[in-house]
Design a protein around this nucleic acid. Structure first.
Length: 220
DNA sequence: CCGTGATCATTA
DNA sequence: TAATGATCACGG
């Protein structure tokens, strides 16, 4: 079931366009949750299964052999994103010398197959509709924006300033909590260079950024 | 706990 | 009402 190349993956994704998530779940023999409160990752995992992505929670792309990352993104009927997009967990220790070129963020975003999922928060998951898939590779301008935000955020983290970092930093990429709850802690570096315990964080794409890239593709 | 898949729910 | 901070499930 795993696609042999990018063309096969795209073809599979195109076959899903217009289907409801309930139809896809039925084909796969899966039950559909009433809402996503306790199944926040259900849509992403449904599409991974439908498209043959490698399972697991490794910090890699979904299709390493194709160099492709798969991302579902909830959008309204006009294609506007309803949520920010999680990219990857942020490293908080041992990051001296880490360059953008070698970062997980850059690796994950180097080539993305976006699958828009049309609906609203009020739309039952099963009734949401798969939109047309689209390939995306950052333009030079987009990569520059991502790189700038990443470098600024990572520098603050390395300087022991993580406790001053909020989701307001960054133009297109932001840092936010990424944990089971507010009691989950992980090691980081404090203002005096000492080890401290803090909330795990993740990098997220802001909606303005994803809205622009989706709009660009829908116009073409 | 970590990293995957994300969205929820409260705040500004 | 959009954005920020908090949270849910799962395999390892």
């Amino acid at each position: 079931m795993r696609p042999l190349d990018r063309a096969a993956l795209l073809h599979s994704a195109e076959q899903l366009t217009g289907l409801s998530l309930a139809e896809i779940a039925q084909q796969l023999g899966l039950s559909v949750p009433e809402n996503l409160r306790r199944d926040k990752g259900w849509i992403g995992q449904l599409l991974e299964l439908a498209l043959g992505a490698s399972a697991g929670s490794k910090p890699e792309q979904d299709f390493p052999e194709l160099g492709v990352e798969l991302k579902t993104i909830p959008v309204d009927e006009r294609g506007k994103p309803l949520e920010t997009t999680f990219v990857s967990v942020a490293p908080l220790t041992g990051i001296s010398g880490l360059r953008w070129q070698d970062s997980n963020v850059r690796n994950k975003l180097s080539c993305v197959l976006w699958i828009p999922i049309i609906g609203t928060r009020q739309t039952p998951p099963g009734e949401r509709i798969v939109g047309p898939p689209l390939w995306w590779q950052p333009t030079a301008e987009e990569e520059q924006l991502l790189r700038q935000d990443w470098e600024e955020i990572m520098e603050l983290i390395s300087l022991g300033q993580i406790q001053t970092l909020s989701a307001r930093h960054g133009q297109v990429l932001q840092l936010r909590p990424k944990a089971a709850n507010s009691k989950a802690l992980t090691e980081a570096v404090g203002a005096q260079g000492q080890p401290i315990m803090t909330l795990p964080r993740g990098f997220y794409l802001k909606t303005g950024f994803t809205a622009a890239l989706l709009a660009r593709h829908f116009m073409i």
